[in-house]
């Protein structure tokens, strides 16, 4: 088991009332928003199981929206997020569902706008979260690492090109998750990093052939 630190025990400072249903929801929203990385016109939130059932009493819906809008976990505006000018600028909708094949605290974000994207994740306890799906690709984002998400046309050699570029920055790869919809079709890479990649590395990645989406997602502050 991971050794905790004193700072974990006497924090986080957060808007109540529940670390999994409120703080976790904000963090999921923040991370999903970073994955989408644009101003959505509309967001459809699908909350499952315990998130759907006790979510309202814990402000899970508010937390998810606040996160997407970029509010921090301890932002006191979360409580009245529906009335904030930020929230009034986008359309949103909440669906409360039951699906016992999903995690007890699962959520899907459907972003609509210039780009449509679905991001799914779970709140796994004590404010810890995991984003496990982007569109149909499985990923593994927990907000604790700077991460690269790449969606590309499945071609031989793309993975080694990408890791080669990261290597030039002397950044260690903590974990890597690859998935594809089929041979020669769309594929994805989720790379968690121990350090930070440079701007030039990101530019080089962006200019690679066969890449549709490149996202550099910074780890969450809290």
């Amino acid at each position: 088991m991971r050794q905790s630190s004193i700072t974990d025990i006497i924090s986080p400072i957060m808007a109540g009332p529940s670390s999994s249903h409120t703080a976790g929801a904000v963090r999921l929203g923040l991370l999903a928003g970073n994955v989408y990385n644009a101003k959505p016109e509309k967001v459809i939130f699908k909350l499952y199981n315990s998130y759907a059932l006790t979510g309202k009493g814990h402000g899970t819906d508010k937390g998810l929206l606040a996160g997407v809008l970029g509010f921090a976990v301890d932002d006191e505006r979360i409580k009245n997020v529906f009335d904030t000018p930020e929230a009034k600028k986008i359309k949103y909708e909440f669906n409360f569902l039951e699906d016992f094949n999903r995690h007890p605290n699962a959520v899907d974000f459907h972003f609509e706008g210039d780009l449509n994207m679905t991001v799914s994740g779970n709140s796994i306890g004590a404010g810890e979260i995991i984003i496990d799906k982007i569109n149909n690709f499985s990923v593994n984002l927990d907000g604790k690492y700077n991460s690269l998400i790449l969606v590309y046309h499945d071609e031989p050699g793309v993975i080694s090109k990408v890791t080669g570029m990261i290597q030039l920055d002397k950044v260690n790869i903590a974990s890597m998750n690859c998935d594809r919809s089929g041979k020669g079709k769309e594929a994805s890479m989720c790379i968690c990093l121990d350090g930070e990649v440079s701007k030039s590395c990101l530019e080089a990645l962006n200019s690679l052939e066969h890449l549709y989406i490149v996202r550099y997602i910074k780890k969450l502050e809290i």
Binding site: M14, G16, P17, S18, T22, E76
Partner: peptide
């Protein structure tokens, strides 16, 4: 009670 109002609290060790 602040916690239940979605006020700002410190989870120490938890929110509850």
């Amino acid at each position: 009670e602040q916690n239940l109002r979605m006020g700002r609290i410190v989870a120490c060790p938890t929110a509850g």
